[in-house]
Design a protein around this nucleic acid. Structure first.
Lengths: 125, 125
DNA sequence: GGTGCCTGGTTACCGATGGTGACCATGGAG
DNA sequence: CTCCATGGTCACCATCGGTAACCAGGCACC
C-alpha cells in the first residue's frame, strides 16, 4: 500500500523546492558519464579519468566529491604508495543508473537526427 | 529486422563522438524542466516562464532556441499585437519526455536521502 | 643522495556560461 | 499622449567549467 508519505510534495518546477538542487546535480553530462562507468563496478581514479575521455583531473575530482557528498558514491582510499583510491556507487547511486543510461542512449540513438536538424537550422536564411 | 545501420557506433564516453554534444544539451536542468512543461502541450513563452519558476527571459529564450536548433521544439510566431509566440515539442522532442521525466522523478523521490547525506557529509570533521 | 617515476590530486588562471535588471518595439485602450 | 501587454534583447557581473602546471611521498635506479 502507498501512503501520502510515499509521495512527498516535491516538484522540480518550483523554484524553492529542494528537489531542484538534486536535479541540477544529476542533469549534468559529467555526472551521467561517471555514474555510467561506475555502474560497471568499483573503479580507481585513474581508470575513471581514462574511461570518461576528455575529463580533467579537476572536474573529475569535483564531480566525485559532489556525488560523494550527496551519498551517491563511496570513496575508498588506501594508504599505499603510490596512492590508490577507488570509487563505487552506493545503493542510492545505483538507482541513478537506469535514468542516466536512458539519457545517454537517447543521445546516442538520436545524434544523427539532431545533427541534421542543426545543419538545417544553421543553413536557413 | 535490425541492421548494423540501426546501431551506429555512437558512444558518449568517447571525447570526439558527436553524441556527446547531444548529451550535453539534454543533460541540463533547464532543458529538462522546459521539455516536461512542453510535453503537456503547446505553450506560450510567458506561460513557460511562469511554469518553470525562476527561469529568466534570457535563459528561457536561449534554451528554446537551442532546442529549436536541434529539432526538438517548434516555434510558432503570430504577427499580432501584443505578440504571441507558442512553442511545442516535435515528434523527436516528444521522445525526450520519458527519460527527462524519469530524471525529474528521481530528483523528487530521492531528495530527502540526498539532503540527509549532504548534512552528514558537511557535519563530519 | 640526486634524479625520475607513479598516483591522485591541487592551484592559478581564463574564457564560457548562467543570472539580473533595465530597456525596447508595436499597437490598442483610456 | 500615456500606459499596458508580450516576447524578447542588451549590458553587466558572478559563477562555473576547462587547461596546464605543479605537488606530496615513497620507491627504484645509478
Amino acid at each position: 500500500m502507498m501512503s501520502m508519505a510515499d509521495h512527498p510534495a516535491f516538484n522540480v518546477l518550483l523554484a524553492t523546492c529542494p528537489s531542484r538542487t538534486s536535479l541540477a546535480r544529476i542533469a549534468n553530462k559529467w555526472t551521467a558519464m561517471v555514474v555510467i562507468v561506475l555502474s560497471d563496478g568499483r573503479k580507481r581514479f585513474g581508470d575513471l579519468r581514462t574511461a570518461v575521455e576528455g575529463i580533467s583531473s579537476k572536474v573529475l575530482t569535483e564531480t566525485l566529491r559532489d556525488l560523494e557528498r550527496d551519498g551517491l558514491v563511496e570513496r575508498h582510499a588506501y594508504a599505499e604508495m603510490p596512492p590508490r583510491v577507488e570509487y563505487e556507487l552506493t545503493p542510492l547511486g545505483r538507482t541513478l543508473h537506469a535514468p542516466l543510461q536512458a539519457l545517454s542512449h537517447w543521445a546516442e540513438q538520436h545524434t544523427e537526427e539532431v545533427q541534421t536538424a542543426r545543419q538545417t537550422y544553421d543553413a536557413r536564411d
